[in-house]
Each structure stands twice: as structure tokens, then as C-alpha cells.
Amino acid sequence: MMDSLEKASSVRDLATARAKIEIDGMSKWYGTFQVLKDINLNVLEGERIVIAGPSGSGKSTLIRCINRLETHDAGRIAIDGVELTDDLRRVDVVRREVGMVFQQFNLFPHMTVLENLTLAPVLVRKMPEAEARDVAMQYLERVRIPEQANKYPGQLSGGQQQRVAIARALCMNPHVMLFDEPTSALDPEMIKEVLDVMIGLAESGMTMLCVTHEMGFARQVADRVVFMDGGEIIEADVPEEFFAHPRNDRTRAFLQQILSH
């Protein structure tokens, strides 16, 4: 298990990169049901990881543990060397550096797009309002919807909303971006516009963890594909190997299902 992880991360000039996220022997239970079983995963700076697996396999829970939207019960998670514990100050430090994009966008419906983007930089980073607006407009340009700045989220299409959500996370200038099924709630014709933004982000060198079923995206940008089932990491490998020679039966079955059409 660990061998494959080490091997995978050494690919693509990441050899000299330092670990950004360290997860060692992490487990989590909901009551008596164990949702995550002894997860070991190191993510290097600049690495792009796609997490795939059937629903209920614990993928979302895993990345939600990384910014402590969920707490883990055993093992260790550290981001930039800061270990996540009950200490709220550490959680704040981590959340400031880790951006997240949700399946349901979770934009703030009572605020305009611009207000959505400037809120956290002003409140959390204590950025002056004018500067926050400039930064927000830069990121709206980058996700290609600057003309929507003064609309409310409810007036935008799903694809536009998700791009705003990505821009909102980027406005905090995070080192790591987590994507929790960012395209699953979108109409098919809007998936591409969101993936394009994510690909652009990947090319800029952002450390990314994406839970997604978009295998084309995984092939194109992932440094490693992690396959989860039943709360465990079953295998992890560079996409070429992962798709061509899956080693585990469950991986093979999963790939057959989602790649069959």
C-alpha cells in the first residue's frame, strides 16, 4: 500500500516537493459504523489528486476531515505541519489556507456575487474593502464571469454559480483546494465550463484534492488517482497505470461501471 503511494508521488518532478498534507492512520466512526478505516495519504505541494469510488465509500468524508468540517477519531492529519486537533486556533489557521468547493455550491444567497467573494478576505484576512474588491474582480475574470459581479447567486446558472464558488475560495489565496464532487449537481452542458476552470487552476500549480466521477479530468490533470471503497483506500496510482492496469478487483469493477458508456 505505502509503496504504491511513494512511487506515485515521485512522478512528475514532485520528488523535491515537501509534504503539504499528511494523513497517518486516520479513522472515523459514525456511532458504531466505521466510515474511514486507517487512511494513509501524503499529498505533496503542487500535487493534484483525484479521489474516486462508489457512493458511500467515504471520499467526501475524507476531504471534509482535511478542513475539519468533520472530526476524525483516530490517527493524525497535518496540513503544512499544523496538526488538526480540538484546538480551534489551529483549525482556523488550516481553514484559512485550505479552500473548499462544494457539490451544492453553497453560495450565500442573500449577498451579491461580489459580496460573496469579498466577505471572507475582509473579515478573516482583514483586507481593506477596496483591495478585496480588486482581488475578487481578478478572480471573477479568471473564472470568466466578471459581468455577473453584482447579481445574486439565484440569478445565475448552476455552472456560473460553481465558478463563483471556486472564485470565492480562491479569494482567500489558499495553498490547497478541496473539491467535493464539484460537477455532480450540474446539468451536463455546464460541466465543461467548471472543469475548464479547474484545469486552469491545476496548471497554475495549485495543490488540489478532487472527489469526482469525471475520469477524463482525472486522466488529464491528476498526478495520482486514489480509489476508495468501504472507507478504505484500495489503491492509488498515476492515472496511466490506474486506468490501464487496475490491480484490485473492486477497482476494476468500478472502472468498468463508470467507463462502460
Binding site: 468540517l69 482556523d92 453553497n106 450565500f108 478573516v124
Partner: peptide
């Protein structure tokens, strides 16, 4: 929806900030 507070937390807002700016304004409406 829970997601509203989660999004606020993920952006680094504290409990009172996310209540004051995100949850309460919507709830009162």
C-alpha cells in the same frame, strides 16, 4: 441548509461571524 454554515466555516469565518453575516440574516428573512 447546513451547507451555508459549512461554506462559511470553510472560508475561515468563526461561529459568531458565520451566524451574524450568513445564517441570521437569512433566517430572519
Amino acid at each position: 441548509p447546513r451547507g451555508q454554515q459549512e461554506a462559511a466555516s470553510a472560508l475561515g469565518l468563526g461561529y459568531w461571524q458565520s451566524m451574524w453575516f450568513i445564517v441570521i440574516p437569512q433566517a430572519l428573512r
